[in-house]
Write a protein that binds this DNA or RNA. Structure first.
Lengths: 164, 164
DNA sequence: ATTACGAATGGAATTAATTGTCAAGCAGGA
DNA sequence: TCCTGCTTGACAATTAATTCCATTCGTAAT
């Protein structure tokens, strides 16, 4: 799966924070490490639950706030997810997502052949800066267990079907 | 700019409902017409507010329920939108989206050259059924009024009703 | 037309998700 | 050390989404 956040990654991210006059507090550091350390696009609450194991005093408010801050400075991104809660990721390089229509899992997809798409030039005057493709389908797990149910019990970890 | 929902469109959608043993009640009909008649990917609440103008007694619950039903039978789709509440659309043919990073407007993009992307064959065994590209950038309106603020006052509506 | 029954609805209440407020804590410079 | 501003945590307030349930509607059989 996803490569662990290298020390280099972290240093770069920390540097970005610093360049925005943000001190790297334990809370910020914890949230960032947690988010960078997983590739499953967790919700704010997922992050909160995970971080609080190591930092029991952290508050939910702070996690929401830190996530928003990380997004603002460009270290993290809020990803598209048709489920109800917002999800986050720290991979800022171009990549795409496989979204399972059944269990809502969201899996990163790297495919260099998709990274050089000719950008459309909409007559509207819209200035395109980046793009990301969402591939919808059925994940291996769901294929395995048959195609009956929609959505896993708790959208806790993956996400679901929507669209880009 | 989006073509008005033709009678044909509506008939096809109604047919789908019927095939799922769903009677076309005024509420369902109103929600469907409203949703099909706009191209701005409204939230459930946007739809509620709009429909209630013509059908004052309709309840929010019903709108949420109808939208979910329409999605279930395949007449509508819940679209991905980072931030803000879930949004819906009835255009089921392949198309893509321009998403404004500032005001969060979401605009449909048709571009045949993007419709035949070679589907990746992820080693994971994920079975891809469809895809959609999200182009992020700045919309004409936001370019015009300068690039200062993030997010318009209310993410509720984005470009709505009558786009040319 | 009347009855019966399941589908569908409305509205309140509830839960989940997110944001806002504000006082207290901590860090660094004057 | 004192002042000042950045951060945080507790909690209130919103906003979004869902659940509950009694009532109503539609349709078919009577």
């Amino acid at each position: 799966m996803r490569a662990r956040p290298t020390e280099t990654d972290f240093q770069r991210q920390a540097e970005i924070c610093r360049s925005h006059a943000l001190s790297l507090t334990v809370q910020r550091r914890s949230v960032l490490e947690e988010l960078a350390g997983r590739s499953d696009h967790p919700t704010a609450d997922d992050v909160f639950e995970a971080v609080r194991r190591r930092l029991p005093e952290i508050s939910r408010t702070t996690v929401y706030r830190v996530l928003e801050t990380l997004v603002r400075v460009g270290v993290a991104r809020r990803v598209c997810h048709p489920g109800s809660a917002a999800r986050y990721e720290t991979r800022m390089r171009r990549h795409h997502h496989l979204v399972c229509l059944q269990c809502e899992a969201m899996i990163d997809l790297d495919d260099p052949s998709l990274d050089g798409l000719p950008l459309p030039n909409p007559s509207s005057g819209f200035r395109i800066e980046d793009y990301s493709i969402q591939f919808r389908g059925i994940c291996p797990e769901c294929i395995k267990r048959g195609s009956v149910r929609r959505k896993s019990p708790k959208p806790g970890k993956a996400a679901a079907g929507g669209e880009a």
